[in-house]
Amino acid sequence: MSQLSQKHLLGIKNLTEKDIELIYETAKTFKDVINRPIKKVPSLRDITIANVFFENSTRTRLSFELAEKRLSADVVNFSSSNSSVKKGETLLDTVNNILAMKVDMVVMRHSSPGAPHFLSKHIDANIVNAGDGTHEHPTQALLDTFSILEKHGTLQGVKVAIIGDILHSRVAISNIFALKKMGAEVMVCGPNTLLPKYISSLGVKVELDVMKALHWCDVANVLRIQLERQQIKYFPSLREYSLYYGINRRMLDQLDKEITIMHPGPINRGVELNSDVADSDHAIILDQVENGVAVRMSVLYLLAGLHN
């Protein structure tokens, strides 16, 4: 099979293992493409894609926009800060207005979990979820797992620790789904207050001690503390968080093996990661960024191909 089982990419939860493998395989060929002298292919030349961002984003939007342009799609950008959403327009109205201008695909980020799912029930265009609240961020999980696959050659049996603010992280949820589907072992680690109560029901190990997590894992995916989503204090101070959960070179040197360090960005240097780790050979943070464009090209290409 060379096509996806889904018309939209709403989350990793609805994807099959075969879908994910197809996305990786296609991403690999796109990674070749973006390393050529001419980085563009004409596949989506008759397609218009709207990037609809109801929440701030720099790198995800940039990455999607680059992916779209590398595929020769026409791109329109929309962000809620300078739009009629401020004047009281509903989500459905806003998107229907954009679609009336003959847009084929919508890449959407929204602060409400389930917003792209709601939209997919009402409109015809293919929808790609670029993050919905604290729910899912499927393309980030795909690029994270693709980067692990690239580095380790397989996902089967690889031990991945996701460290940090799990409670507010859509990256964590999507990563857990993707990693479990592809046969990796997953552990989440963070202060008790930042771990969702029922997280172990997803089949992941839970650990409070970061050093134990580092000893256990082959890959540490370190997440940012999402201060903007925290309405109450979950820990006394950033300084204290960094003291107990920040990862530095000294900790890595104590391990009996080399582990891979990942971070979805943006990094708070000196909080969750020290510079001597973020800039070390262990880190594949910039590879993640490069793979992000290839994986997003793959997703857009495969979804567009379903159109009849």
């Binding site: 060379s2 296609t26 070749d32 004409p42 596949s43 008759d46 567009a304 191909g305 379903l306 159109h307």
Partner: peptide, 20 residues
Amino acid sequence: TTFYRDDFRRRDTPVKANAT
């Protein structure tokens, strides 16, 4: 040649890409 084909979105199933 997969990404350069002129029948993308005109076939029932997309063609699978191979290595260049």
